[in-house]
């Protein structure tokens, strides 16, 4: 009897109509502020595209692990590079490292007054490949943000790719950029917001971490090492890391 109900439930869920993801809903609802629009325009003007230089003639001395490649890209990767953090010299590598375990929206999309559920989402569609799972927020059993292969993403791509230099299109572009970023927080949480003993942002147990791993994550040396930085340009003794 129990299993019958389960199968029925599964059956039902398969037929249920897909709702639009929460992030897209919020983008559509967002309004454009004049002051922010000017900022966005300025950013677009000042931005200069740097082409990615991989594989230099002089190869690195130490053998390094290769960059991970996944079948599916996050919606953010339509514009942002796979290593999006580059401003904070101290933390950028570590933040980029997190993109292997955590999807962008987990840190940058934390809407008020809505309860999100966090689950692992596979970024590899090919079942033969090793799954590239990332912690992703879900709302009503629907990922808050989808991959870059849906209609919404295609539309954004199309709008952004408009190469007209006239004022109208740039303003349109700025508006698009603004609306896309309105539901997001530019600053993600601090290291210790997750890597602490209490009050983590994520419920690690429900994410099926083992107790050992939870303890490891909570008491990891690196975030604790970073917590000692009080000033922006302060440098820390490496020996502290060993303690």
């Amino acid at each position: 009897m129990k299993y019958l109900i389960y199968t029925l439930l599964l059956f039902l869920s398969a037929f249920s109509v897909k709702a639009t993801p929460l992030y897209i809903q919020q983008v559509k609802l967002s309004s454009v502020n004049e002051k922010k629009l000017q900022e966005a325009l300025k950013q677009i003007k000042e931005h200069s595209e740097v082409s990615l230089k991989d594989n230099l003639f002089v190869s690195p001395f130490h053998k390094q692990t290769k960059s991970e490649s996944t079948d599916k890209q996050s919606f953010c990767n339509v514009c942002h590079k796979k290593q999006p953090h580059s401003l904070d010299k101290r933390k950028r590598s570590f933040l980029n490292m997190h993109t292997r375990y955590v999807s962008c929206e987990t840190c940058h999309f934390i809407p008020k007054n809505t309860q999100l559920k966090y689950k692992w989402l596979n970024f590899n569609s090919d079942s033969n490949k090793i799954p590239a799972k990332r912690i992703t927020p879900f709302y009503n059993n629907e990922a808050v943000l989808t991959f870059s292969d849906n209609k919404f993403a295609e539309q954004v791509k199309e709008n952004w790719a408009n190469e007209n230099q006239d004022k109208k299109t740039t303003i349109e572009k700025a508006k698009l950029k603004l609306r896309l970023h309105t539901p997001l927080n530019a600053e993600g949480p601090e290291c210790l917001d997750c890597h602490n003993n209490k009050n983590q942002l994520l419920d690690l147990e429900s994410l099926k971490f083992s107790r050992k791993d939870i303890k490891k994550l909570q008491q990891h040396a690196i975030p604790r090492f970073f917590s000692r930085f009080s000033k922006e340009d302060q440098s820390l003794r490496m020996t502290d890391l060993l303690q």
């Binding site: 740097v50 082409s51 990615l52 230089k53 991989d54 230099l56 690195p60 130490h62 053998k63 390094q64 692990t65 960059s67 991970e68 590079k81 290593q83 953090h85 580059s86 950028r92 590598s93 570590f94 980029n96 490292m97 993109t99 292997r100 040396a221 690196i222 490496m238 020996t239 890391l241 060993l242």
Partner: peptide, 28 residues
């Protein structure tokens, strides 16, 4: 002995510098 691998063994320690070079601090 210096604990370098506490950080440098972490996979995916990458960033793109202002010249566009993909910098990888992970050491296998």
């Amino acid at each position: 002995p210096d604990g370098c691998f506490i950080c440098h063994a972490q996979e995916g320690l990458e960033y793109i510098d202002n010249k566009g070079v993909l910098r990888n601090s992970t050491i296998n």
